[in-house]
Design a protein around this nucleic acid. Structure first.
Lengths: 203, 203
DNA sequence: ACAGCGCTAGAGCGAACGCTCTATCCGTTA
DNA sequence: TAACGGATAGAGCGTTCGCTCTAGCGCTGT
């Protein structure tokens, strides 16, 4: 398609002409999020990214698995952005977590319940069968937990903050799954309310 | 394979010679749980069930989707059994929920982190694309929520019990996913502890 | 002007996919 | 014993899968 300008800088993505590699990763990330690993074909990714099979295998000689790892890492960054935005919405950690659930509920509803957690579907069907992908998913979860831990560190001792953050990420993950399946934002909002209540028991 | 005895009674399954239909459903349920919908082929199901393709399409003329619905319903019953066992382990609801997480953690570890929630993987990759399957998954989640709600109804008003049960199921779902990906029972046990603490705030 | 190279382009490989189809087996009835 | 129908058996259909491979594009440096 259109010629690519960027040289060694891969962190770009401002406007119109995004590099081919980036378009491939983005398309892969969205498809993996919506239909999982096995349900997504390389040719479909190439078509969606307006790239060709040749380009895909040029940038990802490791094939589908290598591309999936890059896509999961991209999804991790996207989800981190949402999480950071929610956590920054209030000083009080309890309110901040509730803000996260509201953000997630909004984006889920707006996508007609299609765009849930960017790694969950892929993670579940590759667990124990594709170590590279599983590790990328594990790192994503670890990173998200770290973000929440940082927010909770004010006023709580380190171990408590970590523990609570782990429970919070699990709950967010499960509530998003439930909300998608039931096509309702209620599970997410309910999870937000109860997480806030739980956090307040530590004050 | 061996000839099938049972006539109209489909609830059997005691020993050795299980009916062909049952073997197919069981094999499908375990494969869907481990590798999701798209990752599981009909021929693999038939092979695992020691049945033939002809038998599969004889019992499930609706093809893969109809079989998946039956498999999800089977998984729902299995998970309900675990849940019921955990909930019956203690009178105190908080302790009972913790018992559930311990049961789930045990069975997850014993299966080398392979057997997580029986519907999660399939649910996530068929959401918005296979209404029959999605509805079966939604009914499973609804049923599990109902089981927890019943346990919580003692001492809590109806709405609170329902709400709390919804949050609990979301948390269990997410904690199991996290535990699988991280290959650690910690997320499940942490979720159990915090769920217990949350429930106790209502006493 | 002309190599050199990063990237695009897509035909085509063997294998596996979901599913259809016909043929046969065998316990139950008449 | 003969006929019937539920159940089993698997070859084979058309399609798609992940991936390989060769050809050619256009930009860069000399």
């Amino acid at each position: 398609m259109q010629t690519t300008k960027p040289r060694h800088d891969a962190t770009e993505g401002t406007d119109a002409a995004v590099g081919t590699r980036d378009r491939i990763v983005r398309a892969a990330a969205r498809l993996l999020q919506r239909q999982g690993y096995e349900g997504t074909g390389i040719k479909q990714i190439a078509r969606d990214a307006e790239a060709t099979l040749g380009s895909v295998y040029h940038f990802f000689p490791g094939g589908k698995q290598e591309l999936a790892v890059a896509a999961i890492q991209h999804g991790e960054r996207e989800f981190s952005d949402i999480l950071r935005a929610g956590l920054a919405a209030a000083d009080d950690p309890a309110e901040a977590i509730t803000a996260c659930t509201r953000l997630l509920a909004d984006s889920l509803r707006e996508s007609d319940w299609m765009d849930g957690c960017p790694v969950a579907a892929t993670a579940l069907e590759t667990v124990g069968r594709a170590p590279d992908i599983q590790q990328a998913c594990a790192e994503a979860i670890g990173h998200w937990t770290e973000l929440v831990t940082e927010k909770l560190r004010g006023g709580l001792d380190e171990d408590t903050a970590r523990d609570l953050a782990c429970a919070a990420i699990s709950t967010l993950e499960g509530a998003e799954l439930t909300a998608q399946v039931l096509r309702s934002e209620e599970p997410l909002l309910t999870a937000g309310r109860h997480l806030a209540r739980l956090i307040r028991t530590y004050e």
